[in-house]
Simulated scan of single mutants.
Amino acid sequence: MADNEKTELREKLKADFIANGFDGLSDWQALENAINASLPRCDAKAITDTLREKYFSVENAKKVSALQMIKVDDIHPYAAIYISLLQKIPQRIMLGKNRKIRFLTTTEKMIEYATNMLSLQEVERIAMICLDERKRVINAQFIAKGEESYANASPSQITQIITIYKPKYVIMAHNHICESLEPSHSDVSFTINTRKLIGKLGVELLDHIIVNKSGALSMAQSTDFSFIFNR
């Protein structure tokens, strides 16, 4: 595309965005506008057309690493980095919210903390949150990253974290990519086994929170699963 054509397209995209706002754009139009505004020397339309052909949806494109886009799918490097940042920056912002949450003394705070860690993750991950005797957060980290709908954490890794941070309490949390928050059989087994494992080390499992993009479930507050946490 000639430079004058690129300029005309950029001006048209800008005018359409100003006139109609974000809500008036499709996902692909929004991405084209974003690439156009951030990478003015690139052919935003050509990049967007290539992405649509290869990944079919913006959500699929955001899941692909920048390195794969560049090396395998021949996407412009700056565009690949930009698309990767579209996912990483919101995740970082959500995680940053937890810096203001020091104590997890209520179920509501536990859910808020777990949601900030997990709600924007694109694959299933397991988080382990360690608390001291006052239920102050002393460590929170991801301990497993799985496929799109499955992750598993090893007992040795959990034991190692307990040994390092010496918490009084632990909260486990993981995300579901699907719409359901209902714990699976493996979720229930993992919770029971984790409670037994850390109990032998003198640590109490307070909750296992399941998060998806629309909400969260506390297993400790659930009628069907609260028995796991009752001593």
Rank of each mutant, 00 (worst) to 15 (best):
P40N: 09
N175D: 08
A80D: 08
E182S: 08
T106Y: 05
T223S: 12
I81E: 02
L51W: 02
A30Q: 03
M110E: 12
E179I: 12
T159P: 09
S226C: 12
R41M: 11
E148Y: 08
Y165P: 09
F225G: 07
R41F: 13
R52C: 06
D132Q: 02
E148N: 02
M128V: 14
I177T: 12
N98L: 06
A220V: 00
R52N: 12
Q160S: 14
E204H: 03
G24E: 03
N36A: 15
F142H: 08
N139D: 10
L9V: 09
I93W: 00
K12L: 14
Y82K: 00
E182I: 08
A61F: 01
E204V: 14
L118W: 05
K45P: 03
F227K: 12
K14H: 09
T194D: 04
D207W: 03
L25Q: 05
N193T: 10
M1Y: 07
I126P: 04
M219P: 02
G21W: 04
S26Q: 04
R134T: 11
T163C: 10
E11H: 13
Y82E: 05
L9E: 10
D3Q: 11
M94D: 09
N152S: 15
E59R: 01
K63Q: 15
L25G: 00
M110D: 05
L85M: 14
T105D: 11
I210R: 00
E124P: 05
K109M: 14
L13W: 00
I75R: 09
S226W: 00
R52A: 06
Q121L: 13
V211C: 06
V123K: 11
